[in-house]
Design a protein around this nucleic acid. Sequence first.
DNA 1: TAAGTAAAGTTACTTTTCGTAACTAGATGT
DNA 2: ACATCTAGTTACGAAAAGTAACTTTACTTA
Lengths: 103, 103
Amino acid sequence: MKESSLCPRLAKAMELLGKRWTTLILYQLLEGSQRFNEIESALPVSGRLLSERLKELEKEGIVERKVFPEVPIRVEYSLTDKGFALEGAIREVEKWSQNWLES
Amino acid sequence: MKESSLCPRLAKAMELLGKRWTTLILYQLLEGSQRFNEIESALPVSGRLLSERLKELEKEGIVERKVFPEVPIRVEYSLTDKGFALEGAIREVEKWSQNWLES
DNA sequence: TAAGTAAAGTTACTTTTCGTAACTAGATGT
DNA sequence: ACATCTAGTTACGAAAAGTAACTTTACTTA
């Protein structure tokens, strides 16, 4: 894929946030740390994609993964500072959606 | 696809804005009215997808299409009020990208 | 002791969406 | 007659997403 000449950083941001489910996953995590299954239940996303997205977000330093070696295993995902820094953007989209979308 | 129980309006918003190129197209249009070819040149998006995205955005009332029957034909796209209302959200993402992404 | 349950994924397979490039239409210029 | 311009559309292979079944490890229940 070619690069956006226009604003490479925004383009990069949108390549992340623009992927299906990513922003909704982050919106979930704004509530606080959550387990894999909690996120999976809260959103209509499948395990396959949730796993993929969380790995991408972890790699970008937006989400942190903590394993608790209990039985059964517990894994918690939470936002890093970089992740929390997205709250403003997400809230703006939320506001827009409430003002301009119906139902 | 199942529905998000969580926040249907945000989910709807992200289904629109989360599509590849959509937000960058809107970012372009924040600069003002633009022709099809101008947008196509500014972004690494192909005519096929640009056409598809503009139609979706027009259908949602976010973008307006005006045809000037000159020769050759001129078509200009611009944001509606609903589209301009997204400026805050887009600027927040832009800010985040400048603060947290490198290069 | 065998079977069932639970969490956090992974695998295999099908369907959608995307990317690339070639093509179209109408009017004009050479 | 042929090339040029804009704003698209079409065809097709490649990549991403949706769905559902399966895996692993360690209990717990029958």
